[in-house]
Design a protein around this nucleic acid. Structure first.
Lengths: 136, 136
DNA sequence: AGTGCTGGTCTCTTTTTGAGACCACTCAAC
DNA sequence: GTTGAGTGGTCTCAAAAAGAGACCAGCACT
């Protein structure tokens, strides 16, 4: 099967799903995308894809997240079924966060996007520099 | 080549790129990801992937975006090199927005994520319902 | 002269985020 | 026994971002 034709067909399907027939409102895809497009969500999913982490470990791993946002983002990821939260009754109780099957299945496309970002951050940096130059 | 092994290898590469050697700070990948993970960015890129649109068309296409955020998001997308802005000197001057090559190349991984969202929004909805049930 | 369409900007309010203090608990060192 | 650090958070307040809506110049049509 020709990949280009496949892509065009698939694009149309997804586009229809997004537009929900002529408008973008009330679209479940938007709902899901917005849930994972938060400032810290993708970062935490990427981290937890490597291995489960405890709360404090994540805080040290992502030093510029506030404790408040770490709590809240993990809570949201748990609510949407991406992350599993397990409390271990150790002497100081420890809490471990890990990806669920759903979270792992999302890691795959997310990883493609991250890979793209890795390949293209130079182009983006150049575009920004060029754009800023025109603004002077 | 075994796809699983390839994925694991690639994961490690990207993980190293993201962690920048043991910490997530000062990471260009984060910079790029955050630029496209805004509330409206992915939506506009998806729309413009179909065909170029004018400002007013985008506003009608995405009815719940404020004019202010539409202006600003398009401006940011243009600054980062994803979107081209062209002014046509018609009687009321019209402005057309279209994807650049960089924007089109980003559409591909973004599209995978949207496709995943389309396939899994039921699971997310169920997870939310189940989670909310435990909170009662 | 009034109305509408173009692509915006400006101001104000509400929401989201960030910074940092605080908390109860436990363990280990002093 | 008392201090200090580590556990996973919550609470409060300030700053930043986003949403709502008025406003604007220019032109066309009526």
């Amino acid at each position: 099967m020709d990949s280009k034709i496949f892509n065009l067909k698939a694009k149309l399907e997804v586009y229809k799903a997004m537009t929900n027939g002529a408008n973008f409102a009330d679209c479940p895809v938007r709902d899901v995308i917005q849930g994972i497009s938060g400032k810290w969500s993708s970062l935490l999913v990427m981290a937890l894809a490597e291995k489960p982490y405890r709360f404090g470990e994540l805080r040290r791993l992502v030093p510029d997240i506030s404790q408040r946002m770490l709590t809240q983002t993990l809570h949201d990821l748990q609510r949407d079924g991406y992350v599993h939260r397990e409390v271990f009754p150790t002497k100081p109780p420890s809490v471990e966060y890990s990806l669920t099957d759903l979270g792992r299945s999302m890691f795959d496309p997310l990883y493609h996007l991250v890979q793209w970002a890795e390949l293209n951050h130079d182009a983006v940096r150049d575009a920004r520099a060029a754009f800023n130059a025109t603004q002077d």
